[in-house]
């Protein structure tokens, strides 16, 4: 506690001029952001007849990667070959691949205007950066595997499938929250 108190005035002096220029704006009200997100999803339904997604783009990317390294291996595998398609269209000229590229651009633009672009690591105060990176990789891996097994992630199943009242999507959504809450206690040191 003492060290924080002692260091605080110096920190303020050093950071003050920078913070005036680059002060990060507060996030939007959750309900307002949710309505915005819902209208984007509605636009996808009305314009395309389909919803949003994210993990599908990773399936295309991985399958194309495998196909470059070993076409025989990719074609022999039911999962990779399905993502590679019929050979008429290039597998990366895919709706979700382009949508996810848009997500990256949209996130960047929003962060730029809100002064939230900053090289940083998201973690609680009780875990080292190295450990956080390890957990990030493991969590991503578990997520990638689970999303493929469930035929979609929070975007394609929970959000999109939820809005069209799909039975599997609602079961999936409840399972996601159940799984998260079941293990949250064991990983509390990472976040709190």
């Amino acid at each position: 506690m003492n060290t924080i108190d002692v260091a605080a005035p110096e920190d303020i002096e050093e950071r003050a001029p920078v913070e005036v220029i680059h002060k990060a704006q507060p996030f939007w009200n959750s309900y307002l952001a949710g309505i915005g997100l819902g209208l984007v999803l509605l636009a996808a339904f009305v314009i395309m007849g389909r919803g949003l997604g994210a993990s599908g783009a990773f399936s295309s990317l991985v399958s194309v990667g495998i196909n470059v390294v070993s076409p025989e291996h990719a074609q022999a595998n039911g999962f990779f070959s399905e993502n590679l398609g019929d050979g008429v269209h290039h597998p990366l000229k895919d709706w979700l691949v382009f949508e996810v590229m848009g997500v990256v651009v949209g996130g960047f633009v929003s962060g730029l205007f809100a002064h939230r672009l900053k090289g940083s690591v998201e973690k609680g105060p009780r875990i080292s950066t190295g450990k956080r990176f390890l957990f990030a990789f493991l969590g991503g891996g578990i997520m990638g595997f689970g999303a493929k097994l469930a035929r979609g992630c929070t975007s394609g199943q929970a959000l999109t499938g939820g809005a069209v009242l799909g039975v599997g999507s609602w079961a999936f959504m409840l399972a996601v929250f159940a799984g998260g809450y079941a293990v949250a206690y064991f990983f509390r040191r990472q976040w709190t």
């Binding site: 991503g140 578990i142 689970g146 469930a150 199943q157 999936f172 996601v176 159940a178």
Partner: peptide
């Protein structure tokens, strides 16, 4: 898959 995803 949902349970696994929640853990991830």
């Amino acid at each position: 898959g949902g349970l696994i995803l929640g853990v991830g």
